[in-house]
Design a protein around this nucleic acid. Sequence first.
DNA 1: ATGGTTGCTTAGCAA
Length: 257
Amino acid sequence: MKVATWNLNSIRARQERLLSWLSLQTPDVVCLQETKVTDEQFPFEAMNEQGYHAAVHGQKTYNGVAILSREPIDDVRVGLSDSIDDPQARCISAQIQGIRFISVYVPNGHIVESDKYNYKRDWLERLFPYLERTRQPDTPLLISGDFNIAPDVEDVAEPDVWRDSVLFNPDMTKVMMRLSDWGLEDVVRKHNSGPELYSWWDYRQLAFPRNKGLRIDHIFATSELASLSISASVDRDERKGAKPSDHAPVVAEFNWP
DNA sequence: ATGGTTGCTTAGCAA
């Protein structure tokens, strides 16, 4: 099974690239972020014609997450399903081929100590009880998406520029360690030990040609599933050419089912 | 050189 996560930065702006990429890579499941469309505007027909079912949780203008799958999608749940009234569409989960998939778009946070950063921290606090409620015995869990967190110094091309920013600071590193403590393994890092593996490059300052990126898009899986992973990579080529997203797709393959 | 780009929506926000 080939699984991918990709922050599209608008599915309308990226629809042609998405369709070409799907036909080239033929992933089984794709977690999408920043679709930036309401559910009514989601291009279900184009995805279906490409051979994919789609589960969506969108909103107007901002955010928006989705899961595409070649096999049928069951038991779709949207949001973090807690007592907080949160209008931002940042989480969707679904059951596919015996795996619980979660697609997340973690808040960016803007600037440390801003309201947006407090929202990011609160959102991440809410994620752990959500995982606890979502976890089921004997069902592997895979959570992937744009976490807006570079876990470690080797995930940042220019640590001195990004240190103590919203994307890379000790508190955010702790969150990633809590995911690990909870039982989730970073499948991409497992298969790529070296530096210079990034998933996002700023549109500005020629960041991509200079490879000044950060690894902030991740695929985590519970240990049994992670142990069945064969390979993982960033599809850097998808960041090239005309009208790319600022994120590249991240892909992992599993010996499943 | 105190900016730089993109997308959505139309002047300003979000990333």
